[in-house]
Structure formats: C-alpha cells, structure tokens
C-alpha cells in the first residue's frame, strides 16, 4: 500500500470541497443568476401571526375598506373578513359594555358617546388564525385547514357550504359568500404575504395599529412587540391557539 493516510485525507478533502463547489455552480446554472430569480416561497420558513394595538386604532375603517377591495368581499356589512367594533364601557356596569359596529366600520364611526361617562375604544377584529382551530376541527370534508405556515385557509372548490365552521368559530370570523354558497374568511392576504407584501389592511392602516408578523423570522419586529408590550389574545380560555395578539385589550372585550 503506497498511499499514505495524508494522501488519502488530502484527496478526500479536495473531493468534498470541489463537489460542493460544483453542486453550487450547477445550482446557479439551473436557476440562472441568483439576484434575478425571486426567492421561492418556502412554506416551512414562516409562521404567520398578527398584532393589533388597541391604543393606536382610530376607527377610520381603512382596513375594512381595503380588505373588501383587495379580496372582492361583498359590500353588505354582514360579509366582512375584518371589521372594527366600538366599545363603550359604562363605569356603573363594567361587565356589560355597549358594542356597535355600523357597517363593520366601513364608513368610520359617527360620534356617539361624547360627554358620557365611561371609557371608549375601538377593537379591530379578524380571523385569529388559530394554531388549533375549532373551525378546522369541525370541517367534515377537509375544506378548511391550517396551512403549514400558520394560516387558516379554505379550499373553495371543496367546501360544501355546510356552515359547521361558521358556528364553530368563537370569534365570528366566517360567513357564507352569497355568490358561491361556500364559506369565506380572512386569508391573511395569503396571495400577498407569500409574495413579500404585507396584508391589505396593514398596508392602509394609518397609525400602524395592525401589523403582520412572521414568528419564524428572527429579525421580524413582532418579537420586539411581543416582548415590550403586555399582550393578550381573544378568549384564551377556549385554547384555540389564536395568533392575533392584542395590546391594550380591555377585559370587557368578548
């Protein structure tokens, strides 16, 4: 045996390094120039969440308007993927707040509680994109599902329109689209966020009350937000794994 251990290691090392380089070069040849090709969306690299800052919401209704435009949602107020509620908590009866949402907040909120005692605030609502969602559990055909990147979506070509999920959602986020008789809901603008854009509602929110966040991206500002604020989810007792985090949420909010 005339090959020494040193020779062998040298050869093996060269082979490993060069084959890796060749593989890299081959990748570049196959995919073209790396800066020209948009990075493909990888499902497992994302885990989408949402933050809503109650103290920043001014009830302008831009989000409701933009959502309907972006997603072709029917204009009638009962069909809303997102809507804004106005709370009026009377100090004499803190347990039972007065809640209204004229046209889902589409046209904003005309003054109603001026000069009255009590606290007032807006609460934007939308699908909470629960990690263990009740709506998904009740779907008899697998038409609604949690995507691997943490978004609750509906397969419209598969939905029967049986309405189980509409009843199961503890947040009232689903409705039957009268045009297709299938269920419709917030998709977290899946067609946008998978292309590197933010959701339509976040895009138009003038105060930054609504923010999309990717929990799997260590550089996403959502981590700082969750660290620095005292956040709460809606109906935590339901154990839905909701990923819509509210800052400044009052205990009277249902």
């Amino acid at each position: 045996m005339d090959e020494t251990r040193r020779d062998f290691l040298l050869k093996t090392g060269k082979f490993i390094v060069l084959s890796a380089a060749a593989a890299g070069a081959w990748e570049a040849v196959v995919h073209g120039q790396p800066d020209r090709v948009p990075e493909a969306y990888r499902l497992l690299d994302h885990w989408w969440a949402f933050t809503i800052d109650i103290d920043k919401c001014i009830g302008c209704g831009n989000c409701v308007y933009a959502c309907k435009k972006e997603n072709d949602v029917p204009l009638e107020p009962q069909f809303s993927r997102t809507w804004v509620e106005r709370y009026h908590v009377n100090p004499d009866d803190m347990e039972h707040p007065e809640v209204d949402s004229p046209d889902g907040g589409y046209f904003g909120f005309p003054e109603k509680y001026a000069g009255q005692d009590g606290k007032n605030f807006f609460v934007p609502k939308m699908c909470n994109h629960c990690a263990t969602s009740p709506c998904v559990q009740v779907c008899p055909v697998g038409a609604t599902f949690e995507s691997p990147d943490g978004v609750v979506l509906v397969d419209k070509s598969y939905c029967l329109g049986c309405r189980y999920c509409v009843q199961a959602c503890p947040y009232g986020c689903r409705f039957i689209d009268p045009r297709t008789s299938t269920v419709d809901k917030c998709t977290l603008c899946y067609h946008r966020i998978t292309k590197g854009l933010t959701t339509a509602c976040c895009e138009v929110c003038p105060t930054g009350a609504r923010q999309l966040g990717d929990l799997k991206n260590p550089n996403d500002p959502i981590h700082a937000f969750l660290r620095d604020h005292k956040v709460q989810i809606l109906k935590p007792q339901m154990a839905t794994g909701a990923k819509c985090y509210y800052n400044g949420l009052d205990g009277s909010v249902r």
Binding site: L43, A66, K69, E70, N71, G142, A143, T144, F145, E146, S147, P148, L153, V154, D155, K156, S157, Y158, T187, Y190, H191, R192, T194, K195, L197, A200, E203, V204
Partner: peptide, 18 residues
C-alpha cells in the same frame, strides 16, 4: 395535512390590488 395541497396555490392565485 388533511387538505388538498393545490388549495394553497388556488388562494395564492388571487390578484393583488394594493
């Protein structure tokens, strides 16, 4: 998972307006 994988692409096919 317990759904049609193609549904993801169906949802993504929606045109962007903003």
């Amino acid at each position: 998972g317990h759904f049609r994988a193609g549904a993801l692409d169906d949802v993504r096919a929606h045109p962007v307006k903003y």
